[in-house]
Each structure stands twice: as C-alpha cells, then as structure tokens.
C-alpha cells in the first residue's frame, strides 16, 4: 500500500514570466558617461533635426517612459494611455487659451487632470491583469475619445483646439528652435521623476509585484493600491508629454485621444526595450524621426515601414534597441550590482 505524494492539484501562487531586463548594472563611470552623452544629444538635437521634430521626440520620449513605468516595472500593459496624453493635451490647450498663464503652468494643469482621470479608471483596471487589464484600459480610453468627440462646445470636435498660445513671460517662442529649449527642462524633470520612482523603495516594491504578486501580498503589500499609484504616476508623466505636445503643435486634435496613439506609445516602448526606462527615448527618437522622414519624402504607407521595423525588432532584438545594448554592457561587466 503506497500513498501518492507530492502531486497536489490545489491552487498554487502564480509567477509571472519575467524576461524583462533589469536596471543597468554597469559601473558608475559608464553610467555617468551615458548620462553626459544623453544630455549632450538632448542639447544638440534641434541643431541636427528640424526643431519641430525634436520637440515631438521629447514629448514622445516622456510618453514612452511613462508607459514603460507600467509595462516594464509594474508588469501592466496599458493599451489606453492616449486617454491621459490626450486629456492633458486638451486641458493644457484650454488653460493656455483661456487663462493666459505661462505654458509650463498649463502643462502642469493638464498633467494633473490626466492624473485625476487615472484614479477611477486605474481603480477599476488594476483589479485585472494581463490582457484583461489592457482591454479595460482600452475601453475607458475609447469612452474618453467618444466623449471628446461629442462634447464639441469644449473640444471643438473634429476641428480641434486651434491657436494654443506659447506664453512664457512674454518671451517670443514662435520659433520652434527656442521652444525646444523652453520645453526641455520640463521633459528632463519628468524623466528624472521616472528615474527616481524606479529607483525608490516604491519602485522596488513594484518590481516585486511585477515578478510575484502573491508573494508581495503575503509580505503585507496591498498590491492593488501600489498598482493604482503607479498607474496614476504614469498617467501624470504621460500627461506632461501630452501637454507639451499640445503647446508644441499649437493645436489639439482628436487623434491625441485615438487608440492608435496608445498603440504607438506601446510600440515606442517595445522598440526601445521594455523595462529599460531609457529605451523609450531611443524608441521615440527613431520612430518620430522615421515617420517624419517618410511622410516628408511623400511616402504614403508610413505604417507599413514602421510596422515592418517593429516586427523586425520584436523578432530579432527582443530586448529592444536599448535592451540589446544593455545586454552587451552586462556581458562586459557581468557581476556588478547597484
């Protein structure tokens, strides 16, 4: 007589697959050199590109980093971040048009509005995981889109908000070149905030939740509330980008709220590398520049090329552009931990 042992069919805690690249563990001097190089590129950018394209890159970089905060560091794929980008764009535009405040104040108001919107949506969404989380965020983003489409007295419907001013203490910022340098500090502040969040005690808990939510709960961490906080912070950062985008374009169009905008943000993150934080900068630079170049040269099917590149990156460089480089660095300095 033998008893069958150890083949329990009782429920067991799930463990999320974690192929995500950890934060760079290169030596200090490498990281400082990268930071210096990054700042140099940021300062040079409008000299090498059309300044308007450079501004777009800034905005999308911030948007991508905000999405990566959820996707890469919390394990949540939002497919509705256009809701926060676009809501902030509209609020920023309305504040700038009607209140005549300096544009950073308008952008801040927009980002705060995005964060407020993220509270109820996030509250409902974080109770789901995986594809269901993505669908809930998408559904709410679509609702926001349709509200904006119908609420013409405020959003001007398909015409969009025209003539968003670039007020900054009477400075003349009509030249995109000068506006770039006025916008840069806001983007850098947003990026620094994202870096701080990831490298905070809170960020450590988020990574724990991403990799093993059941374990995190058993340690006493209220997982839903942590996810919600991350969601709201992410929406705020996405809102900073969206607000600047509105000021940069001097108009707010409905497609800032369209689901393809959410999709593009995810593509930028995947292109740059999920869970790398800075990959979003690279992804934004590549994608925005490429789209601009393609449409400028009269190429109609922009999506065909960007889509093709996306497929190639997913197939050949699964860690994305930044992630692939980081993997090389990690191979060079394998043991160092920060």
């Amino acid at each position: 007589m033998t008893s069958t042992v150890d083949t329990t069919v009782e429920p067991r805690p799930g463990r999320a697959p974690s192929g995500l690249v950890a934060v760079g563990r290169a030596p200090g001097w490498v990281r400082y050199a990268l930071l210096a190089a990054g700042l140099a590129v940021a300062l040079w950018l409008p000299n090498g590109l059309y300044p308007a394209v450079a501004v777009d890159i800034l905005c999308w970089a911030l948007f991508a980093v905000a999405v990566d905060l959820l996707l890469g560091f919390t394990g949540l794929m939002s497919f509705g971040h256009a809701a926060y980008w676009g809501t902030s764009a509209y609020v920023t535009g309305l504040v700038a048009i009607n209140a005549g405040v300096p544009f950073p104040v308008a952008v801040l108001a927009g980002a705060l509005a995005a964060a407020v919107l993220a509270v109820p949506i996030g509250y409902l969404a974080v109770k789901r995981t995986g594809i269901y989380f993505a669908m809930v965020t998408l559904a709410f983003a679509q609702m926001v889109y349709f509200v904006a489409n119908e609420w013409r007295s405020v959003t001007r419907g398909e015409n969009g908000l025209q003539g968003v001013p670039r007020e900054l203490f009477g400075l003349d910022l009509t030249d995109e070149y000068y506006f770039y340098y006025a916008a840069l500090p806001i983007v850098l502040a947003g990026l620094a905030a994202a870096w701080r969040i990831v490298h905070s005690p809170f960020g450590r808990v988020l990574v724990g939740i991403r990799d093993n939510p059941a374990r995190a709960r058993a340690l006493g961490y209220p997982v839903h509330r942590y996810k919600l906080t991350a969601f709201v912070l992410s929406a705020f950062l996405a809102g900073l980008g969206g607000g600047l985008f509105a000021i940069g374009h001097r108009l707010v169009a409905l497609d800032t709220l369209h689901w393809t905008t959410s999709g593009k943000a995810v593509i930028v993150v995947v292109l740059g590398g999920i869970g790398t934080l800075w990959g979003g900068l690279l992804g934004a630079a590549v994608l925005v520049r490429l789209e601009d170049w393609l449409s400028f040269s009269g190429f109609e099917a922009v999506g065909l090329v960007t889509g093709g590149i996306f497929v190639l990156v997913v197939l050949l460089f699964r860690r994305g552009l930044w992630g692939s480089v980081a993997a090389l660095v990690q191979r060079r300095w394998p043991t160092r931990r920060n």
């Binding site: 329990t8 067991r12 990574v207 724990g208 990799d211 093993n212 006493g220 209220p222």
Partner: peptide
C-alpha cells in the same frame, strides 16, 4: 496583505520568490 499585517506570515509550498532580486 491585511492578514499579513495582522501578524500571520506564510511560506509557500511551491517556492515563491522574486527571481531578479
């Protein structure tokens, strides 16, 4: 998480850790 806060800690039958930490 609330049960844990009230002073009940558990281990898991299937080892349950944070692989990257």
């Amino acid at each position: 998480e609330q049960v844990a806060r009230l002073g009940v800690a558990r281990s898991f039958q299937i080892t349950s850790l944070f692989p990257q930490l």
